[in-house]
């Protein structure tokens, strides 16, 4: 096996081990979307139906509609959690072990990103299994087609989180970022309601939600879960990933990025 392959596997194994051993994190990752699905969606199910619109070919109930949004939520939280763990690792020093590995920095950061995506995919399929037990299931082709969509959206959200982590000086500052990133990204998207409904109430909010990359990640997931491809959403997610990754690389470059500035004042 090449040095790259071995390092990638090592980084992924560590991330999965950490996730499995932090049981609270595993449970929280599942409880959060389940609360939305069981409480929020159940309440709205009786009052809100979703009109026929792609990828749906018939009227659907609200709990079916919300599942892709909740998958996006899992990946969004996981992306931010990974970046939080990068800030923590940096403060605790273990990021130094990774950064002093004799492999290119772009590779190490991408491998770290891939590890976070792997963890988010585990969470998503665990969530889908519980949803299926609750009677909200999809065709098996949907579960298979979902995988590449999850990889792409997971990389995008992870790269955004990684860039944010490169700009944050201290762990304490992270809560503010969560408020300014996670909540606007989630609520100003098609995760909870179709965009046309938002347009009826506010054109400005509809425009913002239409431009929100998270909306496109959710739509990519929604179409995939119904065995269809949304190429426009895939292109926007891929483009956002590329830009975010480039910014993250710059942020972690010791001679140019935020990391260089953060080291000022050291011994």
């Amino acid at each position: 096996m090449s040095a790259y392959g071995r390092a990638l596997l090592g980084i992924m194994r560590r991330e999965v081990l950490r996730f499995l051993q932090q049981r609270g994190r595993f449970i929280a990752a599942l409880v959060r979307p389940m609360v939305w699905l069981v409480v929020f969606a159940a309440g709205f199910r009786s009052v809100l139906g979703v009109a026929i619109q792609p990828p749906y070919q018939t009227y659907i109930t609200y709990d079916v509609y919300i599942v892709p949004g909740l998958i996006g939520m899992i990946q969004l939280f996981n992306g931010m959690q990974s970046s939080l763990s990068m800030v923590y690792d940096r403060e605790m020093g273990s990021m130094r072990v990774l950064m002093t590995t004799p492999l290119p920095r772009w590779f190490l950061l991408t491998a770290k990103l891939a590890a976070g995506v792997a963890v988010s995919i585990l969470q998503v399929y665990a969530f889908l299994a519980i949803a299926a037990l609750l009677g909200i299931g999809f065709r098996w082709q949907g579960y298979v087609a979902l995988l590449p969509a999850l990889v792409l959206s997971g990389f995008m959200l992870g790269a955004v989180g990684m860039f944010l982590s490169s700009t944050i000086r201290q762990l304490e500052n992270f809560a503010g970022v969560m408020n300014f990133v996670i909540f606007p990204a989630f609520f100003l998207s098609s995760a909870l309601y179709p965009l046309w409904r938002m347009r009826e109430s506010s054109v400005v909010l509809w425009q913002i939600a239409s431009a929100n990359p998270f909306t496109h990640a959710v739509e990519l997931i929604r179409f995939a879960l119904h065995g269809q491809a949304n190429l426009t959403a895939a292109a926007i997610v891929a483009a956002t990933f590329t830009v975010a990754l480039a910014l993250a690389m710059w942020g972690y470059d010791p001679s140019h990025g935020f990391s260089a500035r953060r080291l000022r004042g050291g011994d």
């Binding site: 071995r6 090592g10 980084i11 560590r14 990774l98 004799p102």
Partner: peptide
């Protein structure tokens, strides 16, 4: 083991 993987050790 994590460190060994980063240093390309089997």
């Amino acid at each position: 083991f994590y460190f060994a993987a980063l240093r390309n050790m089997s």
